[in-house]
Simulated scan of single mutants.
Amino acid sequence: MVCSFRRGNLAGQRRCAAGGSTLRAHGSGGKEERMDAPLLRCCSVWKASLGLHGIDLAVPRGGCTVLLGPPGAGKTGLLRLLAGFASPDAGRVLLEGGPVERPPPGWGGFGMVQPIDTLSRYRSVERVVTELVLSLPAPQRAAHVARALTQLGLDGQEPVRLGALGPVPRRRLALARALAPQPAVLLLDAPLDGLEQAVRHPLALEWRALFRRIGITTVWATRDPGEAMLLADHIAVLAEGQVVQQGTPQELYDAPASAFVAGLLGENNRLPGTVMVLEEEECQVRLDCGPELWARRGDVAGPGSRCIVAVRPERVAVAALSAEEMGEGALPAVLRDVIFLGDHVRLLLEIGRGGALLARRPPGGRMPRPGGPASVAWDSDVAFAFRSLR
């Protein structure tokens, strides 16, 4: 049996997955901004000592670009390169289309959020922030410090000693210190690492609102996909010193370029199989558990190669019907378990000969009974065939 409808004209969606989108809404004002004219661009940048191997990256103006990847992917090295702490061995870093080492007039420079734990615990909040604007005249310096502290909710705490601050106020102070010189681009290397999740994500949302309010271009490195999705206007996924895919969070979630990206950004069913037929935009796969289906062509090799078919649990339709009653492309299934999790229900199903499938549904809908008649289906546009990671 062949599962899922086939749908043509996928080329435009494929271009979108590769970062071909040219317009996006920015901020709460709903203004549209061209993404093909980034503020910063890395063009085939190599830096062996930082583990960077042919980085291609576009940083849109005024938004938050998140560098997402596992430890050792090259995130910190790329931030150091952007900050000017190192120069590329090959390739170019461009600022507004020109060399980054020759910035345009009025360029505000880069600001980097760095840990303040190495500073003396007896320094006051005001002194910690003032240290980065000592070159300014006194009245201007005072205004910059006051503005930065107010932005982070630290006004009124100027005399408080660093040693008296808890983990969250310390993070706020580190950000205020970096914002005091009013840089044009803010660089942050996993600034919320070490905080509990219950605190971390609300703080990320708070900072996202601040960045949008002041209109600063931000590059944020993290290994936390949830944090990336909360913050980003634009995500660049890194692996082994390369950008393997970049685009908006929705583009990467809806059209991942590989099994690695699909697994990084959200939950996925991963159905192992073998490629049977390869077409320009789609391929036919025989799953190890028996069924045959069509899926969008990811990075799979030719016929006979091993692959996985990835489909998001929320894309799986489940009916308390036989496959014939559900309609074309449906597969017979057996419901093994139902797990209620408040805002959604997880359905654990079996297809074919032992194939495990997860579906996610809002609570309250009509669902099959465990062991009763059931069928599943999904559109081939939302299923992707990728090279097997094994």
Rank of each mutant, 00 (worst) to 15 (best):
M1N: 10
V2A: 14
R6V: 14
R6G: 12
R7G: 11
A17L: 14
V66R: 07
L67N: 11
L68Q: 10
F85E: 15
A86H: 12
A90R: 09
E101H: 12
E101N: 11
P104L: 02
G106K: 02
V113K: 03
L119N: 09
Y122I: 11
V129N: 09
S135F: 06
T150R: 15
D155N: 13
V160A: 15
G163T: 01
V168F: 08
R170S: 12
R172G: 06
G194H: 08
L203G: 11
A209K: 15
I216N: 11
T217D: 08
A221E: 08
D224H: 09
P225I: 04
E227Y: 04
E227V: 04
A228T: 09
A228W: 02
L231S: 11
Q246E: 10
T248V: 05
P249K: 03
A255C: 12
A259Y: 03
A259E: 10
A262G: 15
R270Y: 14
P272K: 07
E280Q: 05
R286F: 04
C289Q: 10
W294L: 01
R296D: 00
G302E: 13
S305H: 13
V311F: 01
R312L: 05
R315Y: 12
A317W: 06
S322T: 15
R346N: 05
P373H: 10
P373Y: 09
V376P: 00
W378R: 01
S380M: 03
A385I: 00
